[in-house]
Nucleic acid binder design. Structure first.
Lengths: 353, 353
DNA sequence: TTGAAAGCGCTAACAT
DNA sequence: ATGTTAGCGCTTTCAA
């Protein structure tokens, strides 16, 4: 029996190895492996067999350099700990899976400096597209986005001007709509509970829209509470307790996200507080979890998965078309869901916004 | 005033552009930009200034090809919709952030075929390391991992043999420990509720460990219920209702994850069922959310963040050392947390496992 | 249908 | 401390 070495070669295999093993030129091997150009079925088989037998994995680095085509899409998001962003990623994944594009995820922790670094790193791979959360960036980051040389889609927010394309919802409008619904239901002593995040522009815009409508009605936020870190559900509980203790005459609590809202809801139910009779509650995001709570929390869907899908679709389409389009703008409209925690005296708002 | 064009150049900038703009050789520019070798402070400044002024972003594709060094780490996980995996990613991110390594995430949707494809894609970028969930893979995937030519860390599970390194917990042991704790607390009519996932080997192993201990005590699972898709919290509610309805004499419900457990807990509390007196409950994972529930659910910490950190640390260390180590095996021990839902007659287990 | 030559933009290795 | 030369492993382009 001839001696056959099965040890994996110490050096990664190259096209040349496949070429020699199949007795066909490197060029033809390359053509077979990429399904480009005409190759006779016989040759094709020979090459495929050799490649498989050797366990050849093409080197995309070299391929990308030679063709200046890279199938990577840079995705830059602030965080992974808030399910909102993994959900956006799911949308992106779902669409890119149909193409040969690969998402590469960078996380900024809501830090502009980290965002700048991550963006620089990603651009140095010359990706086929950039999907980045938000419209606000440092000046250097903006400069990089402008001269990225590939489609750039800014997501989640549409209150502002994009560098190129954008996909998202208007958080200012979301805040306004919620305020309107609350006022129409007859609530007037309203508390706000949210994150202590000066750099979360979207939360800020929602808050601004919210207070704007209150102001028009001659009202102000009656109390407010902010948190940082920790389990959102627990924080929601604690903040709610603190606030109702401090300002007992509040009749509505507006939470900047569903998780703290859920915590607040559980707290109120435990304390036997009549929701939404005595106190109404609302959150933001429309997370799936709400359906499993004892009462469905009022919320507004942030269209997370859809945003990811649309953004990916823009990149994918431009990649196919050879970068036809530009400046696409997809404005999604979050649905207001009253659930069972926003309806005073059994009467909900009439026709919000 | 001289005419200065500020339009971004149509062609991406190269080292050569910086070289010409600064009057220094390409090689020296390269050295400055990578902080390699000795460069006089004067030259250094000139180069840095030119690079910044032009907005030069190095091309890592070319760099990687020339140096055969790639700062990418392939991370392959089954899903993003279960917070477990984003948490692992957070651990990986936290550690890699200290290095110049970049994680690239691939999602398999628990499909072995997709896993194979994703792995192939990632390996074609010749990453500096692979972090992949699980010990079970298709034969071709195993072959790829074996000949990856870089560190491979299999995570989450340690019940089996790794290709190279592994970091995780023993799910079989976790199942055993929980069963033991339940039996010691005096529960005997036990129902199991979990996902309908033949490909979730870790859930399967927990279940096996669990039933193994029951069997030794002469017991069997008294009822079982499986689900697929949908909101875990809601499913937990529904399955619990169905099971207690069908088998009213159950005194314990073991859930394969905390989210469905939380749903079950909320349901029981609403129905006024005495927990843990009439029915005890336990989940798995140790998610943060548990702290915000009306009663803390018994669970077992799956060490998610820590697993990510350790895995990343192995890759990072080997990347520094020039691949010294090999075959590292980190076995973490999940803490059993009895919470407030596993203690019959106010008496918890004595000394589990 | 196949092959040969010439780079892609950078860095290793060797001058100087 | 700086420059020169020769590739890295592929694909593009042109030729046969």
């Amino acid at each position: 029996m001839a001696e056959i070495s099965n040890r994996p070669p110490p050096r990664p295999l190259t096209l040349r190895d496949v070429s020699e093993a199949s007795g066909v030129s490197e060029m033809t091997v390359s053509r077979v492996l990429r399904n480009r150009g005409d190759v006779s079925p016989t040759t094709r088989e020979k090459v495929l067999a050799a490649a498989k037998r050797l366990g050849y994995v093409p080197n995309k680095i070299a391929g990308a350099l030679a063709s200046s085509r890279v199938n990577l899409v840079a995705v830059i998001i602030p965080s992974l700990s808030n399910m909102v962003f993994p959900e956006v990623l799911m949308g992106i994944n779902a669409v890119l899976d149909e193409t040969d594009l690969q998402p590469v995820v960078g996380v900024t922790q809501y830090s502009p400096e980290r965002e700048e670094k991550v963006l620089y790193q990603m651009l140095s791979w010359r990706p086929s597209g950039v999907i980045i959360a938000g419209l606000e960036h440092t000046e250097p980051a903006m400069a990089m986005l402008r001269s990225a040389g590939c489609p750039v889609v800014q997501i989640m927010d549409v209150d502002g001007d994009p560098v190129d394309a954008m996909v998202g919802i208007s958080h200012r409008r979301a805040g306004r709509k919620m305020a309107q619904a609350i006022l129409e239901a007859g609530y007037t002593r309203i508390g706000f509970l949210g994150t202590k995040m000066p750099l979360d522009h979207r939360a800020r815009k929602r808050f601004e829209g919210f207070t704007e409508v209150l102001a028009k009605a001659g009202l102000e936020i009656a109390d407010r509470e902010f948190y940082e870190g920790g389990s959102a559900l627990t924080k929601g509980r604690e903040m709610t307790a603190a606030m109702l203790d401090r300002t007992p005459d509040l009749d509505f609590l507006y939470y900047s996200n569903d998780m703290i809202g859920a915590g607040g809801l559980l707290y109120c139910l435990e304390k036997g507080i009549d929701v939404p009779g005595k106190v109404g509650l609302a959150g933001f995001n429309g997370v799936e979890l709400i359906g499993g709570l004892p009462k469905r929390l009022a919320t507004m869907d942030a269209c997370r998965v859809e945003i990811g899908e649309e953004a990916a679709r823009i990149i994918a389409t431009r990649a196919e078309d050879g970068a036809t389009g530009s400046g696409e703008s997809v404005v999604l409209t979050p649905k207001l869901e009253l659930g069972e925690t926003l309806a005073r005296n059994g009467q909900g708002p009439v026709d919000p916004v």
